[in-house]
Structures are given as C-alpha cells and as structure tokens.
Design a protein around this nucleic acid. Structure first.
Lengths: 192, 192
DNA sequence: AGAAGTGACGACAGAACCTGTCGTCACCGA
DNA sequence: TCGGTGACGACAGGTTCTGTCGTCACTTCT
C-alpha cells in the first residue's frame, strides 16, 4: 500500500502543480492529482477545501502580516508601517522555483486567477483592519493598503527574477517608482 | 407549456437574485432557479456559462468603456480621460433597485464576490489597453486605471444611495476625496 | 504488555455542477 | 407551403464536492 508515506499535503501540491502545467487546470481531474500523489480523491479534499485551493492553501501570509505590523513601532506612518511589515515577506515564502512555476500556471488558468484575486482581497481587508486598530482613519488605511499592495506585488515579481538584490531593496525601489508615477498623474496645480 | 414566454434571460436573472437572497448562493441549485423561471436546468446553461454568471453577464461595461474612452478628445490626460468616460456609466447600468439588491447578495456570498473581482480585473485590463493605445506609457496607464477604478467604485456606491445628485457630480467629488487622501499619505518632503 | 484513543486513509454513496447530443416546436422568409 | 433558424425539453454522462463508515498505524495510558 501507498499509505503513510508522509507529507501527503506536499505530494498533492507538487502533483497538482505539475499536472496543471501539463494539461491545464480544467484538463486535470482531482482524481488524477490524488493518484499521482498515491492517494485517493477523498483524501485530497481532506487536505484542501476545493480543487483550486491546492495552489493557495500554504501561503498563510495574513497571520504573518498581522504580527509584522504589530511589531512596527507606534507612531509610524501608514505606508512606512506597511513597507516595514512587507520587508519580511520572503521569510514565509516558498522556494523561488516553486513560486515561478506556480505563477505561470495561475496566469494561464482563469479559475486560479480568480482565486488569487480573492486571496489578495482578503489579505487587503486584514491589513486595513490592522491599520485601523493602530489608529489610522478608514480612508487612509484603505488607500495605504491599496498602494502598498501594488508596491508589494511589483517588488515580489522583481524578486522572483532577481536572485541578487535583497527583498527590502526591491521593496523600497518599487515604492519610489510608484510614487514617481503617482505624482506624474496629478497636475501640479491640483495638489494640496 | 411554459415555453416561449419571452425574456427567458431576464426571468432567470430575477429568479436567481431572489433565491440567492432567500437561501444564499450555495443553498440554491440551478434547477431551482430554472424551475422558478419556468425553464429547465439545461436552458439556464444556454443563457449563462455558469451559475455565478447569472448575476454578472448583463453588465457589458467593457465595450461601453472602450467606446467612451475613444470619444474623449486626444491630448487629454489619463485621469481626466477616465473620469470623462466613467461619467456616462449610468446609461448602461440597470435600475437602482436591482443593483442594490444584487450588491447585497454579492457581498454575502464569497463565490459571487470572487466572480466580481475577476470581472473588475478584466475591466481594468481592458481600460489599461485602451490607455496604452492612446499613447500613455504602461506605468501611467496602470496607475490611472487603479486609481480611476477606486474612484468609480466609490462614486457608484454613493450613486446607489443618492437619488438626487447627478452621477458626474458624485464622480468628481469622489475624485477630489481620493486625491486628498492620497496627498495625505505622502510626506511633503518626499514629493517630486 | 495490552487496551484505548487518535489521525490519516480507503471505499462507497450521493447531491450538485456542467456538457454533449438529439428531437421538438414556434416563428420567419421565400 | 416549405425549408431554415432559434429556443427549448429530455436524456446521458463526466466532474466536483460532501457525508459516512470501517481500517490501519501510531501513541498514550494503565
């Protein structure tokens, strides 16, 4: 029997990633994923709530962000708080190879992009809540989170292709880039 | 027979909205929706590609935005272009009552929120493309679209609860609000 | 050592989602 | 009057996801 091999969750994730890459998301069944991991379809659903979740369940960035924001000294501005919290992201991320492969698969399959978007939205809501409880008003919290998420996404994409530069440096560089573009989008006469 | 009653699509949308509101999204089956509309489950899938799409298929805002952006005079800045294009949104929107009821149902059901997010993302991609083809660079186009979408969302939420004010006014008021918050998020010394 | 508990798993059943296919019926233009 | 077309019902079947139960390895307590 193939039972009790250990790390069933990791085997399922690897199998799913490979099969999604080879046959597409719709083209692979949960039964195929389970079979490749030496498990049954029923066991797949014991580890993941649904088929898409197999590529997202491991992240768990939300709890990490909450703790990281908590660790920032009080009195720090909203954006600096977020950037400081984001700097420690790579510590909880998976290996770059896995993330690259995963990004390609997600980009190619609408159902997976859909799931990714709602994960982002959920993360944003969590971050907004954390900022609110630190005393920022709602509009500031929301805008800082949106802009901060854009910066984080940009930095993460760069990080996946750049093995040399430290993540913190990519993060501040991305923040500068975004600020430059944002300033360019508002006419000088309209600024307050 | 209940066939040939006309407006099958609208009957299905109404039935789905009501049932989702009464029993929740997961609690209502496609067969129930079809039955309430005097149709079969198979006919439901002739009108909508999947269960969630019954609340989203009618929008078709993308084509409208493309045309509206096209109609803006050349040489206009990115944000003003978007705001001008967005001003005509109510013309293609459904009745306020329908939208309000729909918003409540979507907010209460994760699968529907998921679908809404990907619709927004798709719309954003379309708008970015339209701005690119008008000569804006990629970063400007992307940022203007993100900020513009936030403004549009804010104005639309206000519009649903405010029967008096013209949509164009709500739109420019929302743009002002967002600018104020954005400026507040960047220290004066850091502005370029 | 042996008994009881726990957790991962397989096996099976079944509801709901979604698709393919075919025949039927109303309507429309020639 | 006759074909063409589009909306529809009926049926079959694959896939996703859930509930339930029994089994097996491992652990813990006696």
């Amino acid at each position: 029997m193939a039972r009790w091999e250990g790390n069933a969750r990791g085997r399922l994730e690897r199998a799913a990633l490979t099969l999604f890459g080879e046959q597409g998301y719709d083209g692979t069944t949960v039964a195929q994923i389970a079979q490749r991991a030496n498990l049954t379809e029923r066991s797949f659903y014991r580890w993941f709530s649904d088929k898409r979740e197999v590529l997202f369940a491991g992240d768990d960035l939300e709890a990490h962000f909450l703790a990281a924001i908590e660790a920032v000294p009080a009195g720090t501005g909203a954006m600096p708080t977020l950037l400081a919290a984001f700097a420690s992201v790579p510590e909880v991320l998976r290996p770059r190879d896995f993330l690259r492969e995963r990004a390609v698969v997600i980009a190619a399959n609408p159902p997976l992009r859909e799931r990714e978007l709602i994960k982002m939205a959920s993360m944003s809501a969590t971050i907004v809540g954390a900022l609110l409880s630190r005393g920022f008003d709602e509009q500031t919290a929301r805008l800082a989170t949106e802009v901060g998420s854009a910066v984080l996404g940009l930095a993460t994409r760069r990080w996946m292709d750049d093995e040399q530069t430290a993540f913190a440096d990519l993060l501040s560089a991305s923040a500068s880039d975004l600020l430059a573009v944002a300033a360019d989008g508002v006419p000088a006469g309209k600024r307050s």
